[in-house]
Design a protein around this nucleic acid. Structure first.
Length: 568
RNA sequence: CGGGGCGUAGCUCAGUCUGGUUAGAGUACCUGGUUUGGGACCAGGGGGUCGAAGGUUCGAGUCCUUUCGCCCCGACCA
């Protein structure tokens, strides 16, 4: 491509609506433009990068035997009613009617569509397993799109679905997909971590997220210093901490604690570590057609993890509750505790099981119990893991320490089981001629989000640094002064030769100054720029490597060989 | 969906509080010239329904009402 003919509108100015670095650079370098909130147009450079990523995904999917298909983007709302997700998805699902007044939705994901696609077509165990995927635009009417391509309403996602006759076979496929996803991210040269995750609204028994490590990531993940363990904070668990604070020795007693309401005040009052106090978090738990107040008990040193709390109560949602509502129930805010408490349902964190030397509220104003042995209620209490892990906690799999980092969720794989095949009555006949629902897995990867992730990890203050696997063009030939016939002739010659060698090459033949064209090349981020300029007098050119920002002098004679070696 | 901010040239913004020539700057673009190793300089030029609608006024980018859009914080988010 000749730069004089290319549609690459670069800009010195930062667009006012861009905040995130990848958004700023992709806008400035002429990759994307915004059309409305959460909607982006891909310009030629972005389109080329997307194709590179899609090719890598396709290659790795082919390798594990997944087959590419393409489902219609506009999908009948009937299917969503059939699975019950039309309500569950709520306003994120964009609905509309066609001229015949039939309701449709823009696909945000395709479990229903894919199940419908195979049901009554794959009808025998002999034709299983099968793994079908597509790479296509998705639409989710996000309440608040942000961060450029990171959280758009319209985005490109690879979504895959597998169908099996047994859980064992699903496990095998799940592992194969994890391996394939790892390979994709490795080929993209992304620093990532596979973490255990909460499966959320999509349902299913087990799920893993693929997190690109970046400060700008929206998710907090907990990782081990020694082993491979990593988990989204929503699902992270911990081992038994070895270093526990010294226990306060006291006999069981009721103690007057005037106006001591918070854990901090309590720990200070008794001069004990908060570890030995019981924290009571009251929340309103929302179910499909009811709600109630539930008390969550934790060690004072811990905080409630709301996703875990939702899972423990099998609730739809959990919201804050006011003091007035607690008092109305007969509770005493500030002095609530697990003993002799029958006003509200409760969940106790597993770390409180048989805990000794505890201090907890006495359910009476200005009184706490001390020297509490919680084993007295271990038979009747409901225990669950509801505490959020903290930095410094022990890894659940080894003796390493957990620490936090931020991640961008670029992939999520689920073991779905029969959730959708049952609700949509998608069955096959087994060896005994008996109808069975498909056992399913689902596998997502955000393609457009990967474009942004690549820039989040590969950039500097001057612009993008595309990796060889993703670069829109591998080589940029920059003719410093196009009026210099010798320079221009060499540029044209190299341009021709590299094209013949199947190298994706750009010839910067614009009538601009050296500095302008260099800045532009750095902003766009070509892996290599051949600078044809003042060194030509000595029979040399220079190669600028974007990754290292180093310039190397190379003789005109050997430049072709040199560059061919570099791009391999 | 709650709170806040902003809509003026392709882009970044000033002008609005306190209404009054033909609505400005920088940048980008076009023409000519100079320059040619880090977004250079000089001269000339084109480009605007001031987000939209309604109102107040002799007169509205500016004041009032309504509305649409975009951004930020939160809620939400496979």
């Amino acid at each position: 491509m000749r730069r004089t003919k290319a549609f690459i509108p670069t800009s010195k100015e930062v667009p006012s609506d861009a905040k995130l670095l990848s958004h700023i650079l992709l806008s400035r370098a002429g990759f994307i433009s915004q059309s409305a909130a959460g909607l982006y147009n891909y310009m030629p450079l972005a389109k080329r990068v997307i194709k590179k990523i899609e090719n890598i995904v396709n290659e790795e999917m082919m390798r594990v035997g997944a087959q590419e298909v393409e489902l219609s983007f506009v999908t009948p709302a009937d299917l969503w009613a059939e699975s019950g997700r039309i309500e569950k998805f709520g306003k994120e699902l964009l609905r509309f009617k066609d001229r015949k007044d039939t309701e449709f939705v823009l696909a945000p994901t395709n479990e229903e569509m894919m199940v419908n696609f195979v049901r009554n077509r794959i009808t025998s165990y002999k034709n299983l397993p099968v793994n079908l995927y597509q790479i296509k635009t998705k639409f989710r009417d996000e309440a608040r799109p942000r961060f450029g391509l990171m959280r758009g309403r319209e985005f490109i996602m690879k979504d895959g679905y597998s169908f099996h006759t047994s859980n064992e076979d699903l496990d095998r496929e799940f592992d194969a997909m994890e391996a394939a996803y790892k390979k994709i991210l490795t080929r993209l040269e992304l620093n990532y971590r596979v973490v255990e995750a909460d499966s959320g609204a999509i349902g299913g028994s087990e799920s893993k997220e693929f997190m690109v490590i970046a400060d700008s990531g929206e998710d907090t993940i907990s990782v081990c210093s020694k082993c491979e363990y990593g988990a989204n904070i929503e699902a992270a668990i911990r081992g038994t901490n070895k270093e526990i604070p010294e226990a306060p020795e006291a006999d069981f007693n009721k103690f007057q604690t005037p106006n001591i309401k918070s854990i901090d005040e309590l720990a200070l009052f008794f001069r004990v570590d908060p570890y030995y106090t019981v924290k009571t978090v009251a929340k309103k738990v929302i179910y499909e057609d009811s709600e109630e107040i539930v008390l969550f008990f934790l060690r004072g040193s811990d905080t409630l993890q709301e996703v875990k709390a939702i899972n423990a109560t099998e609730a739809l949602d959990i919201v804050d509750v006011s003091e007035e509502e607690l008092i109305a129930l007969g509770l005493t805010p500030g002095f609530m505790g697990p003993l002799d408490q029958d006003k509200a349902k409760h969940v106790m964190d597993i770390s409180l099981k048989n805990a000794l030397h505890m201090i907890c509220g006495a359910n009476e104003k200005d009184y706490h119990f001390i020297g509490v042995d919680l084993s007295v209620i271990s038979e009747v209490a409901y225990f669950a893991d509801i505490a959020e892990v903290k930095e410094g906690d022990t890894c659940p799999h080894c003796d390493g320490k957990l620490s936090f980092t931020k991640g961008i969720e670029v992939g999520h794989i689920f073991k779905l089981g029969t959730t959708y095949s049952k609700s949509l009555k998608a069955e096959y006949l087994d060896e005994n001629g008996k109808a069975q629902p498909f056992i399913m897995g689902t596998y997502g990867m955000g393609i457009s989000r990967l474009v942004a992730s690549l820039i989040e990890q590969h950039h500097d203050e001057n612009g993008c640094k595309w990796t060889k696997a993703t670069a829109p063009y591998m080589v940029n030939i920059m003719v410093s002064n196009i009026k210099d016939e010798e320079q221009m002739a060499l540029g044209e010659k190299l341009y021709r030769e590299l094209q013949e060698a199947n190298i994706e090459v750009m010839l910067d033949d614009r009538k601009e100054r050296f500095g302008f064209k260099m800045k532009d090349a750095e902003l766009i981020g070509f892996p290599y720029t051949i600078i044809i300029g003042k060194e030509l007098a000595n029979g040399n050119v220079q190669v600028y490597e974007r990754a290292t920002t180093e310039k190397t002098v190379v003789s005109v004679k050997s430049i072709l060989d040199e560059i061919m070696a570099l791009v391999q």
